[in-house]
Design a protein around this nucleic acid. Structure first.
Lengths: 229, 229
DNA sequence: AAAAAGATTAACGAAAAGTTAATAACCTTA
DNA sequence: TAAGGTTATTAACTTTTCGTTAATCTTTTT
């Protein structure tokens, strides 16, 4: 879950936003004091800051400057009543990732935050889960390869790989001819069905080392990819 | 420099924005047709899309949906005259990173783009390497050299070096023709694909001493730079 | 037992990929 | 600006790959 720090000195708005964001399942911390923010950042890690520009003691810009120096990677959004263009430009020049003008629409704020955090999270995890364990085999659909026990690797053709993926997604269920043909070949006709048989045959051969795996034919219906665990 | 694709059917606004953004040193391409956008994205790589929501033929939302499916990582901004709240929410739900209401303030657009690209760039290339161990080889992209076991050194051409770096960054993953061509050659067409083959051939020869390294072709898709450790 | 469906292997042709050589573009330096 | 060298692209040709089709045999159904 994502931790957000909201810095807003207006009690009404601060309360409204913090309750709303909590309701939307953000882990939210609301404070109304700039110096407290710095103390808190020292102790806890936040994924996002939401800063009001107009603040007593220290205004949002100077605070942002300080934060930028201390924690250059943490993203922050400005909230402001001043919709002066020069302020918007100034906000971004300070490194803001967004700048919202009051009155704040809570729903819009939420979707903007979500869009932002989604981007941050995908940037973090380039990991494409692309390893599928099938018995003694490991199937990597993205690179169209099938590895047997670290022993050897079989390169699959596109059709073979698509078909295996389809079967795996429907493992231990009936995968009908029609489903397979329409999704992989695009058309369900006599000749493509012949092709399908050829590819089933290929896959059976590739997977023959593990007796817990089988591709069984269901007469006149389709195939059953059986994987015992 | 960052490449931006602007899709805006209003000639006056399209012209204004494209000129303004060019002046601000963006590499900008302006088109007014949704289908043209899809064709262009197939051939060229863009860092950011700016889409008008209201378009003839295909509206921005459906286009965004298509783009999202085909190129899930490319960020886009919506531009719109409809400031209906439901549209803003819809825009973000489609994966937009920002949503600007007309009339567009060009200066604000520029700073928002800059903020966005700045974040993308730091996330993308966190490090620049000057020594990369690849099996028995040591690759030095900055000096475009490839050393085999302190034994001998191969001087690489710029293309060879760029390609090897790209492959290394995508090692053990599928590097599609399109990705390679759009990032290194800038354009994805028949002839550049031919060139790519030539360079792949060069690299294979250079790297042939270490049997744990291979560049495998994935038919009709791209290449797989395999490095076993 | 006949007919239909499925399995397996092989053959084929089109398209893609690999390789080497030739040409064109691009620098540098005189 | 011309020469020479380097690099990238294009061309020409060969090899490989892949999906379909065909041929043959086996299994299932009625």
């Amino acid at each position: 879950m994502n931790k957000i720090l909201l810095l807003e000195d207006d009690n009404a708005l601060g309360y409204l936003l913090s309750e709303y964001l909590k309701m939307k399942n953000f882990h939210l911390r609301w404070i109304s004091n700039s110096t407290e923010a710095l103390v808190l950042l020292e102790k806890e890690k936040f994924d996002l800051l939401i800063l009001d520009v107009m603040m007593p003691e220290m205004d949002g810009f100077t605070l942002a400057q300080k934060i930028k120096d201390l924690y250059p990677t943490i993203p922050f959004i400005f909230l402001t009543a001043r919709s002066l263009k020069v302020d918007v430009l100034k906000g971004f020049s300070f490194g803001a990732v967004d700048y919202l003008k009051k009155p704040i629409d809570e729903e819009e704020l939420v979707v903007r935050i979500q869009a932002l955090l989604a981007r941050l999270n995908v940037a973090d995890s380039p990991t494409t889960y692309d390893q599928i364990k099938i018995g003694d085999y490991c199937f990597m659909p993205n690179v169209q390869q099938l590895k047997y026990n670290d022993d050897y690797t079989i390169s699959l053709t596109s059709r073979e790989s698509e078909l295996l993926l389809f079967l795996w997604r429907h493992k231990n269920q009936l995968a009908t001819h029609k489903e397979i043909l329409t999704t992989i070949w695009g058309e369900n006709d006599y000749f493509n069905k012949k092709s399908l048989n050829v590819f089933i045959s290929h896959l059976r051969k590739y997977l023959s080392k593990d007796s817990n795996i089988s591709i069984e034919n269901i007469h006149n219906k389709g195939f059953l990819f059986k994987v015992l665990d």
